[in-house]
Design a protein around this nucleic acid. Structure first.
Lengths: 172, 172
DNA sequence: TTATCATTGTTATAGTATAACATGTCAAGA
DNA sequence: TCTTGACATGTTATACTATAACAATGATAA
């Protein structure tokens, strides 16, 4: 969870803040700045479509379908065919700037780019918010279970559906 | 992992045996017998399509797409439209007799029907075998992480992609 | 028997994803 | 400067996954 910068970072230091009111502009600018740095460091290019796609995903802590993203991109003058969105999304995912939420067939911006992490996602079925929870202990338990069978894990996805605090209160 | 029957059950007592040679006929007959008992106990009906669908899923420890199942069902005289397969698969999943593997958009027979469990899946990308690993510790870690954010988990899916022992050896 | 409900069949359509090829862009080396 | 080659984008077409909605059938219980 360590950050590269030293500023206070309310939106991303605490993963659970996705569920609470917070300085979201900071989330966005921070994530973008780190994305720029990360991609530059790798000698890759965060082209206009790719960067814009990331910005769209960063607009809030929800997951967007590829076709939602595509609609937005098309409205802004980019190509309007599925591969346009899928290519940008796949690139972002490969570079660790976005995650695919398989349960939703959708994508969400990574809130901790640059930090090695195999995240666990908390998906609120009330408000559709998606939060990245610290998954190190979960991953460790999963690897232990796999090791018991001699299985080697390369990638994993851990997703939980439920209710965030606000939606639990609202349900009462 | 406790069984309802007292026979030795090599195929299901050890989840990792999905990756190894084992008495698969026993897996199948055991799972079917338990499915019958379970459904009867609930006062529901394991109709021909549903039972046949389960049998098809039980043929081996892999995941089948809904359309794969549909093709099989249609060839045997059942309806040949998608809802036929999806309804049977959804029923089996709701009753805990099958699981949906989201990473694969596919379904696999449950190897521990009747035992309350939120399973973790180990998916071998070499041989496409899917094994159910004991997930209690993983689940516990996930719930702990969620609790930290005040998030209540209702359903979760935990899937890992990698290589089973045999495919690791083969890769050398 | 008849009302009722669950199940299955069927039509149609919605939503998700990728293959394949054409075009364009940019930077490094001749 | 020109060329070349790699990467990126645009575009066409199609494959794959999933569900809504309604009709027909079959079991069950009052």
């Amino acid at each position: 969870m360590a950050h590269l910068h030293t500023d206070p970072c309310p939106g991303c230091a605490d993963p659970d803040l996705a569920f609470a009111a917070h300085d979201h502009a900071h989330c966005t600018s921070d994530a973008l700045a780190r994305a720029d740095a990360l991609i530059a460091a790798k000698g890759l290019r965060l082209t206009p479509v790719r960067r814009r796609t990331l910005e769209i995903l960063l607009e809030d802590h929800r997951a967007l379908g590829a076709y939602d993203v595509l609609t937005r991109l098309a409205a802004e003058g980019y190509g309007n065919q599925p591969p346009v969105a899928y290519r940008a999304l796949d690139f972002l995912e490969e570079q660790g700037l976005a995650h695919r939420i398989r349960r939703l067939n959708a994508f969400t911006a990574c809130m901790h780019p640059g930090e090695a992490h195999a995240p666990a996602f908390l998906i609120c079925r009330g408000c559709d918010t998606v939060a990245e929870a610290p998954a190190a202990p979960v991953l460790a338990a999963l690897e232990a279970a796999a090791a018991n069978s001699g299985f080697t894990i390369e990638r994993s996805n851990i997703e939980a559906l439920g209710l965030c605090p606000a939606c639990q209160d609202a349900a009462v």
